[in-house]
């Protein structure tokens, strides 16, 4: 695999909180312009891995390489500036700020005021529902609207890599497909997406490359469709039908 096609390379990551180690010796390579899915049961360390990429956990050992640069020691706000954006699973909008202000905060590090304005309009095109709620406080939005705002906010920083932590976990079933189709549009724009999902089948269907985590380790890897048809995977994680 050539270095140019790698967006983020996590090498031997061991991380956790305080003294507790949650994930151990994780090696995951994220290819540019693709969707990489990380699936696994509850508590397997998927979210911790995403947080680690963003520097929100304690890194005990290992390196995170982004475009050939070691970013392991960079504070989270700087990681945003080098083009990584993150949508946490919960608490992913600023509830007391309006929808518009949330979007502005997404573009906080950007200096190109005029272009930010144009991008906000562009984002409204992708998520028309936000247009109607521009002046409303984010805390008053519904689960699905909130999730869309969270993704929109993350996109405002013009990221090259977008980290999504269970984007459909708290939304109504009929909104799920809507959000997934938006993710497709995002990738089509050339943004690399890392998608963490508990619902393995859904994620693996849309992804290019899939990683399966269990109790803090990567236990399987491979292209999404192949994992879906893998006997061992089905038995362990999807259950026989």
């Amino acid at each position: 695999m050539s270095g140019d096609s790698v967006a983020i390379d996590a090498r031997g990551i061991t991380a956790g909180y305080g003294k507790a180690i949650i994930i151990e010796d994780i090696n995951i390579t994220i290819e540019k312009g693709k969707i990489t899915a990380i699936v696994g049961p509850n508590g397997s360390g998927k979210s911790t891995f995403l947080k680690t990429i963003f520097g929100l956990t304690r890194l005990f050992s290992g390196q995170i390489i982004c475009d050939g640069r070691d970013i392991s020691r960079l504070p989270p706000e700087e990681r945003n500036r080098i083009g990584i954006s993150y949508v946490p699973q919960v608490d992913n909008v600023f509830p007391s700020l309006t929808v518009m202000e949330n979007l502005e905060m997404g573009a906080y590090a950007r200096r190109d005021k005029q272009e930010v304005k144009r991008d906000i309009e562009g984002i409204m095109g992708i998520f028309p529902i936000l247009m109607e709620r521009v002046k409303q406080k984010a805390g008053t939005l519904s689960g699905g609207e909130r999730q869309m705002l969270a993704i929109a906010r993350a996109l405002m920083s013009k990221p090259r890599v977008l980290l999504l932590d269970e984007p459909v976990a708290a939304v109504a079933p009929k909104v799920v497909s809507k959000i997934f189709s938006r993710i497709g549009e995002i990738v089509a724009r050339g943004i690399t997406v890392i998608l963490v999902e508990q619902h393995a089948r859904r994620a693996l269907e849309v992804c290019d490359m899939g990683y399966v985590m269990s109790s803090g380790h990567v236990v399987m890897r491979g292209p999404g469709r192949r994992l879906l048809s893998d006997e061992k995977f089905i038995e362990a994680f999807l259950g026989r039908r």
Binding site: Y17, G18, K19, G55, R58, R73, L74, P75, E77, E78
Partner: peptide, 12 residues
Amino acid sequence: LEIPAERDEADS
């Protein structure tokens, strides 16, 4: 009594 670990080393 566990002494909590460093929040983060880097400052901005």
